[in-house]
């Protein structure tokens, strides 16, 4: 192993630590930390998804589907992470599960060793993969009118449920409940299951 590799590995380790801290705050309801974590994870997940799809001999057209499904799964299953354990093995296991799920739905089988995903974190190129321009229309189209309105109002309000509530003439609590339901339904539709 070269010194550069060592440095990359050490950086990856300290980043994982930081992300675990952000997740702990998120589980205590800190939306800003949570957003920071998800923004940081998205490009890493994108690189991992691309690798998995390429290995399975699939085009990379579905990469953003895998990224969004993984983000939804991380979100809905976040209580399955044990805050006393490292964050990234949990993230990789979920990313792999979701990528294999997408491949399975396309009738492909693939093996994805976790070690290979670990390498993504030390891969500096992964961090350069920006967020802009990744659009999946299928996602919002699949939500019913009211659910879509809530999700859209929340992101138009910059993740403020209070402001989204004002926009929709709903109480903040009602927005939170509706948002949570919409996200669950989104994952169910995405997973090909019934809502």
């Amino acid at each position: 192993m070269t010194r550069a590799d060592d440095t990359a590995t050490a950086q990856a380790a300290s980043r994982s630590e930081q992300w675990a801290d952000l997740m702990r705050s998120a589980l205590n309801g800190d939306a800003a930390s949570y957003r920071q974590l998800l923004v940081a994870l998205a490009p890493v997940l994108r690189t991992a998804a691309r690798r998995i799809l390429e290995r399975a001999g699939q085009g990379t057209g579905d990469v953003e589907d895998v990224v969004q499904e993984t983000l939804l799964a991380l979100h809905l299953k976040r209580q399955s992470w044990d805050p006393a354990s490292p964050l990234m093995p949990w993230v990789w296991a979920i990313a792999r599960h979701k990528a294999l799920d997408v491949l399975r739905r396309r009738g492909r089988r693939a093996e994805v060793p976790i070690d290979e995903l670990e390498a993504v974190l030390a891969d500096t190129a992964a961090a350069d993969d920006g967020l802009a321009g990744h659009d999946v229309a299928r996602l919002t189209q699949s939500l019913s009118g009211r659910e879509r309105e809530v999700v859209e109002a929340v992101y138009l309000s910059g993740a403020s449920t209070k402001e989204a509530g004002a926009r929709l003439a709903m109480s903040e609590g009602a927005v939170r409940v509706a948002l949570h339901r919409a996200l669950k339904r989104l994952a169910a539709i995405y997973g090909g299951g019934e809502p």
């Binding site: 930390s33 957003r35 923004v39 998205a42 983000l71 999946v136 992101y155 449920t161 948002l179």
Partner: peptide
């Protein structure tokens, strides 16, 4: 929906 929009929606549901 863009991925960053999804992230905003998810972060609003943090707790």
């Amino acid at each position: 929906m863009k991925t960053d929009e999804l992230i905003l929606a998810l972060s609003a549901d943090a707790r």
